[in-house]
Amino acid sequence: MSNTPLIASDQPLTESLRRTLDAVLEIIIPAEPARGMPSAREVAVFRYLQDHASDYWRLLATQLDELDASAFRQFAQHFADLSLDERMRVAHVMRNTNPGFLRRLALETVTCYYQDDRVMVAVGMEPRPPAPKGQEAYAGDFSLVEPVIARGAIWRRTE
């Protein structure tokens, strides 16, 4: 079990907490090779948190510690050493007890995940910002207005 305090360096999480974080990311979004989807562990969530969620480190560290402690109680192993199923069971208990548990991590994770090149391609997008290229758009069938025209004017006369 990791009770290592935050270290006073530019690393916001200790090595053991990083291992726990990676193990959580893998159960938030597991890989699915058939769809071309990596796991959240494989995308740059840690870097994203550094850039966008610096106010979150202390709470995250506390919750990762709680998760590891819970794993030890249930399986006598570190969270990071459990199988995917076992990790899901541990996380499920924690989230059932406290619905807000690691909720922000999940939000930041999906935010980072769906900007990853591999993920964007897998969901049918090009891995780039929308501008300047834009998109080819299907114009659609404007003859569908014909029944509307056939019913005649519907605006209210005022004169």
Partner: peptide, 23 residues
């Protein structure tokens, strides 16, 4: 919405699960 806001909204509603069913 785009993929990020779709995922965030669904997660917030409790509709987008953790685990194998996520995708």
């Amino acid at each position: 919405r785009g993929p990020v806001l779709t995922a965030r909204a669904a997660l917030w509603r409790g509709e987008l699960p953790w685990g194998a069913n996520h995708h």
